[in-house]
């Protein structure tokens, strides 16, 4: 994982109170939301992540770049932030 991806993963864990997650076990392309996600996050967590990312990085997930597509993985989220901030 690159530094931004690591930073995002830590931010997500802090936002969603995921205290028992071993960050070393998470890959950049692992699903971020849903039962396949090693984080165990769901659509309500996704809402919070979207709001936190907007506040911290000033990028909005909007009609064309929905949180559904941006929040597929830490890698897609990091790419979106790099392109839009």
């Amino acid at each position: 994982m690159d530094p931004l991806q690591q930073e995002l993963l830590q931010l997500i864990c802090a936002t969603c109170n995921l205290n028992d997650v071993d960050l070393n076990q998470i890959g950049p392309d692992d699903p971020l939301i849903g039962p396949e996600s090693p984080l165990g996050t769901d659509s309500l967590d996704a809402l919070e992540i979207a709001v936190t990312v907007q506040k911290e990085y000033g990028v909005r997930m909007d009609a064309e770049n929905t949180s559904r597509s941006v929040l597929q993985s830490v890698a897609t989220l990091a790419d979106y932030i790099r392109k839009n901030r």
Binding site: D42, L44, L47, M61
Partner: peptide, 12 residues
């Protein structure tokens, strides 16, 4: 949930 964007209903 009716507002969220991950499911197919979709908010936003």
């Amino acid at each position: 949930r009716m507002q969220e964007e991950i499911g197919t209903g979709g908010g936003g």
